[in-house]
Computed example of a mutant assay.
Amino acid sequence: MSTWRMPAETAPQERLWMAFPTGGYTLGDTEEDAHAARSTWAAVANAAVEFEPVTVVVDPDDVGIAARYLNRNVEVLAAPLNDAWMRDIGPTFVLDQDGSLGAVDWIFNGWGAQDWARWDKDALIAGEVSGRSGATHIVSALVNEGGGIQVDGQGTVLVTETVQLDPGRNPGLSRADVEAELARTIGATQVVWLPRGLARDSERFGTRGHVDIVAAIPSPGTLLVHSQQDPRHPDFQVSRDIIEHLRTTRDAAGREWSIIEVPAPEVLWDDEGFVDYSYINHVVVNGGVIACTFGDPNDDKALQILAEAYPGRRVVGIDARELFARGGGIHCITQQQPAAS
């Protein structure tokens, strides 16, 4: 049995990894769109580097552009990119029982081989980051993304039936198959299956149900869960169903969850339909939390909930609307590397 274990995001970190947006839908159709994307990705990197080292993977053609946006303390690693969702294209870092660093290289296939996605370059990024970090390279045959798992560092992992069991990702695999691979690679002893993700994330340009927009584990036995308060939004019922389902599950230690509902922003729509704006999609760093805001009346309430859930950490809000317009949030564009011993 493997001794690799994925630590909680609250564990001490060596650095934060990101990627810089390049080309395609992420940059958009105009220079104004491109500036908005680059500015938002850079705002997250520039906020995080105040807490810990940050390395941003940048396409070789964009190194000069990135330098105009990124804090000079942010390290740049040049490598070819299709996209900029480091949580999904990068490795999932783990530690061995002796404290040595490993990096799980999942198969990435564009969130289930979706027809709009390109991943010939992104599929190589986990190996690139793994080598640069000095981690032991752990190859997995599971099609998976970092946004599709949330852990407590004690053996519990949250996943979604529509992601790991997606026929476009892992045709023919059973729950038992997925659970065995999660045990081997990240040390999972209790896999909690959510039935689905949020409504917009289940549409054509979504991930088909990433958990990191739905629920987070700020401490063992505690869940932060997205809660849509407005009955007009389809996630009103979705979030209630998920919360009720989670109440029937237990963590690896056999505990019932203490569930903290985090109200969704009041805004319901953007130009594309119902939004999936979520405060759950934050990233924890050493001494801080980089959190999504939306210029919304609920921003302050959500940031206060996060501050209470992560005591002793400074919560920094970044306007994430440009990220969500492109399909994700702050957790989606970051990947933490735990401190090895």
Score class of each variant (00 low, 15 high):
Gln228Phe: 01
Asp177His: 00
Val238Cys: 01
Ser130Phe: 04
Arg15Cys: 14
Gly102Phe: 11
Leu77Gly: 07
Ile125Asn: 08
Ser227Ile: 02
Pro195Gly: 03
Asp241Asn: 13
Gly24Thr: 01
Pro195Ser: 09
Ala47Asp: 11
Arg313Phe: 02
Pro167Val: 00
Leu198His: 02
Ala325Leu: 06
Arg204Gln: 13
Thr248Met: 06
Phe93Ser: 13
Glu9Cys: 09
Pro91Ser: 12
Arg196Phe: 15
Gly312Ala: 10
Ala339Met: 15
Ala302Asp: 03
Ser202His: 15
Gly172Gln: 06
Gly328Ala: 03
Thr26Ala: 12
Val104Asp: 12
Gly148His: 00
Asp276Glu: 09
Leu165Ala: 13
Leu268Cys: 02
Ala42Phe: 10
Thr162Val: 03
Ala135Tyr: 07
Ala36Met: 07
Ile305Tyr: 09
Ala66Ile: 12
Val49Arg: 06
Ser341Cys: 04
Ala302Gln: 01
Ile107Gly: 05
Ala123Thr: 12
Val191Pro: 05
Val285Asp: 15
Gln154His: 13
Glu31Asn: 00
Asp83Leu: 05
Trp4Ala: 11
Val157His: 06
Ser278Arg: 05
Leu323Asn: 11
Ile318Asp: 08
Ala253Tyr: 00
Val94Trp: 09
Asp241Phe: 01
Arg204Ser: 06
Gln304Leu: 08
Asp241Cys: 04
Thr189Ala: 04
Gly90Glu: 14
Gly127Leu: 07
Asp166Met: 09
Phe236Ala: 00
Arg250Ser: 08
Asp299Gln: 11
Ile65Val: 15
Gly23Lys: 04
Arg118Lys: 15
Glu203Thr: 06
Glu14Trp: 00
Gln228Trp: 02
Ile217Gly: 11
Asp271Ser: 14
Gly23Tyr: 01
Val267Ser: 05
Thr55Tyr: 01
Val275Arg: 07
Ala135Trp: 07
Val267Ala: 15
Glu31Ile: 00
Leu165Tyr: 13
Ser174Lys: 05
Glu75Arg: 15
Gly317Glu: 04
Ala103Phe: 10
Glu9Phe: 04
Glu272Asn: 08
Lys301Thr: 15
Ala199Gln: 08
Ala79Asp: 11
Gly329Asp: 01
Ile217Tyr: 09
Ser130Trp: 03
Tyr279Ser: 05
Glu52Ser: 06
Ala135Gly: 10
Thr30Ile: 03
Lys301Phe: 00
Arg240Pro: 02
Leu303Cys: 03
Leu16Met: 14
Pro60Thr: 07
Gly23Trp: 06
Ile333Leu: 13
Ile89Lys: 12
Gln335Pro: 07
Arg87Gly: 12
Thr10Trp: 12
Trp41Ser: 12
Arg326Cys: 14
Ser219Ile: 02
Gly172Tyr: 00
Thr207Phe: 08
Gln97Asp: 15
Trp41Gly: 13
Arg200Gly: 02
Gly287Phe: 12
Asp241Ala: 14
Asp88Thr: 11
Ala45Leu: 05
Thr162His: 05
Asn82Val: 04
Ala302Pro: 04
Thr248Glu: 12
Arg247Lys: 14
Ile186Phe: 09
Leu81Gly: 13
Arg240Trp: 03
Glu31Trp: 01
Glu203Pro: 01
Glu50Cys: 05
Ala37Tyr: 05
Glu14His: 14
Thr248Asp: 00
Glu75His: 14
Val139Arg: 15
Glu244Phe: 03
Asn298Tyr: 01
Arg232Pro: 02
Pro263Ser: 03
Ser39Asp: 10
Ala264Thr: 05
Asp62Asn: 11
Pro311Leu: 06
Ala37His: 02
Pro231Arg: 04
Gln335Trp: 09
Ser130Glu: 08
Gly127Gln: 07
Gln164Gly: 05
Arg118Ser: 13
Asp122Gly: 09
Val285Phe: 14
Asp296Lys: 04
Gly172Ile: 01
